[in-house]
Design a protein around this nucleic acid. Structure first.
Lengths: 232, 232
DNA sequence: TCAAAAGTGTTCTCTTTACACCCATGG
DNA sequence: CCATGGGTGTAAAGAGAACACTTTTGA
């Protein structure tokens, strides 16, 4: 305690978006510093009187203009002491999800970040620091969490087609799904409401729009219900 | 970045031990400071050139003399900015398990902590800071994790009785278990080896000692096996 | 011989899997 | 009328739940 601690605390956000069978990660390019020409995760240092959660949402707003649908703490990266070559930084990483409406970024005119851009998860550019590793951790968490928490809905529009939900799962988890069994199971949970809307997309038979009923889910959860989807 | 960040990083450890149907948490009483007469979690500030993991193990050694069987990052507490009344501290909490041999503490002659002591989880003293909340989080994680990861074995001696495993689950999860089904299921996993030892405890029929086969577990895990125990 | 805990199988129920054809629309 | 994706039921297999008596030892 008598020794002065010289470690900085940062927060980083891994924001996932999904559209047309592709998962995207939101990255920014910094204007200044060593990482000038590298992309990195949105984030930055925590202010003295700011909670960690406030820091992430502020950085996201400042650097990308985005507000997210889902946010949770992922992991704190602080074992590699030289993960930032400038000085010791411990980073608390947050994991966030947005719906497709956020995938077109409005121009950002701010101070820190030159620009923000969505990258497909399988076409990431070179990343600063250990941000690649952080994204891998987040992606693993996303895939895992999809199987036991109803977070897939946060990656879809409020009203979605069953096939979109289905494709979300098959794409991200790289597993095949029996459409009938999947539908039966999900609908059996009783947490998805059918809307009275039917829409037509390009070709094929028009399909019903569905809606996640979060209230119902919370109720069932209290009664011991566990969302769970298994794959072969 | 031009503003000086004035936040300290600490690590805290929630160490669980289990013996005779009771779960214990390891606490320490500080010699100095505001928390002089309160118990708190072992932990302290991270040194400049020390990884977070190294900081926890060091603090545990210094304050309690213990080395643990299992250690994982739990959560980073940094949303309440006045969780420490002295100054802003963000604490990375780690969750640890020890076997019953660690439950008798050797005398600690060190600098920071006056003394270390095991407390039953349901008889915790008044705790400093938000440590009560941290313990609650850790306890919830423990209970949850017990159902999907074979960590219960880290709370038992290397060789254990089936009834001990059974009691661990019934005690911590407060659920009844059908002994036959439980045994059938666990043995069916193929990750527990029967030893050729049979021991007698007080009264009743003597029982076989079993041993967790971690190597086997890792192998099966790679092939897609998932440890899972459900309760009614 | 009694008390205490260990050990052991079978049946029933429920959940999961496998599987294929018709429907509604747009072009 | 053809291509495209949407919508649906049933049977078989596997997993989980319910259930009670015998065995071995120490006191």
């Amino acid at each position: 305690m008598s020794i002065i601690q010289n470690i900085k605390i940062a927060v980083d956000a891994i924001v996932f978006g999904y559209e047309k069978n592709q998962l995207f990660v939101l990255l920014v390019k910094q204007k200044f510093g060593d990482t000038k020409n590298l992309w990195c995760l949105p984030g930055g240092f925590v202010l003295n009187n700011e909670s960690l959660t406030a820091a992430v949402t502020r950085e996201l707003r400042e650097e990308t203009g985005i507000t997210v649908n889902y946010l949770e703490q992922l992991y704190t990266f602080g074992d590699k002491i030289d993960r930032d070559p400038r000085f010791r930084v411990v980073s608390v990483a947050y994991f966030a999800l947005v719906d497709p409406s956020k995938l077109t970024l409005t121009t950002i005119t701010n101070t820190d970040a030159e620009k923000a851009k969505w990258f497909p998860i399988d076409q990431l550019p070179d990343l600063a620091y250990d941000h690649r590793e952080i994204i891998d951790t987040a992606f693993a968490r996303l895939k895992n969490k999809l199987t036991y928490q109803p977070i897939g809905f946060d990656l879809l529009e409020t009203e979605f087609l069953f096939s979109e939900l289905e494709n979300l799962y098959t794409t991200l988890l790289e597993k095949n799904i029996d459409r009938r069994n999947f539908r039966k199971k999900i609908l059996g949970f009783g947490i998805i409401d059918e809307t009275d809307k039917i829409i037509s997309v390009k070709s094929g038979r028009p399909a019903k729009l569905f809606k996640f009923n979060e209230k119902k889910y919370r109720e069932l959860e209290l009664k011991g219900f566990h969302f769970e989807i298994k794959f072969n």
